[in-house]
């Protein structure tokens, strides 16, 4: 069986190929080989760092660094000298398929103002000195949304909610509970004797021990 779900995962134009191992085969013995192709050309290119590897991902950023091109990649699995057929990825368009990270930013405040300094995310860099490129060099219309959060206002709102809603509700519940307790104690706990002129009228035949309930009516005296 072949590797499954071969697909690119790209962030800030760092393009990493991922896949799942073939079904039902112990992973630890498997090794993989990866090739990629510039869409529309005829040559599948072997990436040197993605040959005879055991992990289920491989970084193809170098080979797919021309973000104006489109790409396909494919993976083959090897086990004890035998190999699977290739499994290909869907077409990968770096410009539209990459996910852009949030920008880095710094805050500085003056007496009556706040300065927000925003920097576009760095992209994967091709050159060895790791000189970063920035996304705005690739996406000319990169836009930013800056939001401000007023924490003071939030604490005021919290205090208002506390005093305005929670405390009154608690007090009301407390008052109700206390009054219920008093009424209960008055009725059940203080052993109140029935007035002597009331007689229990039993309105259905039964033996004494089963007839605890019945109406108490004034006797005919």
């Amino acid at each position: 069986p072949s590797p499954r779900n071969v697909h690119f995962v790209s962030r800030n134009l760092k393009n990493v190929l991922h896949w799942l191992p073939p079904e039902g085969i112990p992973e630890d013995k498997l090794i993989y080989s990866v090739k990629y192709l510039v869409y529309g050309t005829t040559r599948w290119i072997q990436d040197a760092e993605c040959r005879n590897i055991s992990q289920t991902w491989c970084d193809l950023s170098r080979g797919t660094s021309d973000h104006k091109e489109l790409y396909h990649a494919r993976v083959k699995a090897f086990l004890n000298g035998s190999c699977s057929s290739w499994t290909e990825s869907p077409r990968f368009n770096p410009l539209t398929d990459t996910k852009i990270d949030p920008p880095a930013f710094a805050l500085s405040s003056a007496e009556k103002s706040i300065s927000v300094i925003v920097a576009a995310p760095k992209t994967w860099s091709r050159n060895s000195r790791n000189e970063p490129n920035y996304l705005h060099e690739i996406y000319p219309i990169l836009q930013y949304n800056v939001s401000v959060y007023n924490t003071k206002k939030k604490t005021q709102e919290a205090v208002t909610i506390l005093l305005g809603y929670i405390l009154p509700v608690l007090l009301t519940v407390l008052i109700i509970l206390v009054s219920c307790c008093c009424v209960y104690r008055y009725i059940h706990i203080t052993k109140q004797k029935y007035p002597t002129n009331l007689v229990r009228v039993l309105y259905y035949p039964c033996s004494i021990d089963k007839c605890e309930r019945g109406n108490l009516l004034p006797s005919e005296k």
């Binding site: 529309g40 005829t42 091109e69 396909h72």
Partner: peptide, 16 residues
């Protein structure tokens, strides 16, 4: 749509 295009080695618009 792209899954219905089995030919990887040819392109009509050719991006580059």
């Amino acid at each position: 749509i792209q899954a219905r295009d089995p030919i990887r080695t040819a392109s009509i618009l050719h991006p580059h």
